[in-house]
């Protein structure tokens, strides 16, 4: 799938579960009360004060996560169950 700044957080999480951890580490909580927040990636980022340049970076890095769902993509953003245990 293609990630862009207009993607809804709900769709992003559904398609790229690792985005939850990635965005949390950037300071954006997209799961609250166990459910995804509403709005787009851009809106969620702007709410936290991120610039257009930051958002462009998020899009690029999330695209890597989307394209490599089963691999460690080097961000150490994904949940590694074994490591946590």
């Amino acid at each position: 799938m293609t990630i862009n700044k207009d993607i809804s957080i709900e769709e992003l999480i559904e398609e790229v579960p690792a985005s939850v951890g990635y965005l949390m580490k950037e300071g954006i909580r997209c799961i609250v009360c166990g459910e995804p927040i509403w709005g787009s990636l851009e809106e969620a980022a702007e709410e936290k004060g991120f610039t257009n340049k930051d958002i462009e970076r998020f899009v690029k890095e999330l695209q890597v996560l989307a394209d490599n769902p089963d691999e460690n993509v080097g961000f150490e953003k994904k949940i590694d169950v074994d490591k946590l245990n």
Partner: peptide, 9 residues
């Protein structure tokens, strides 16, 4: 899964 990932983080 999303809730799990959030909690685990």
């Amino acid at each position: 899964e999303a809730a799990f990932d959030s909690i685990a983080n």
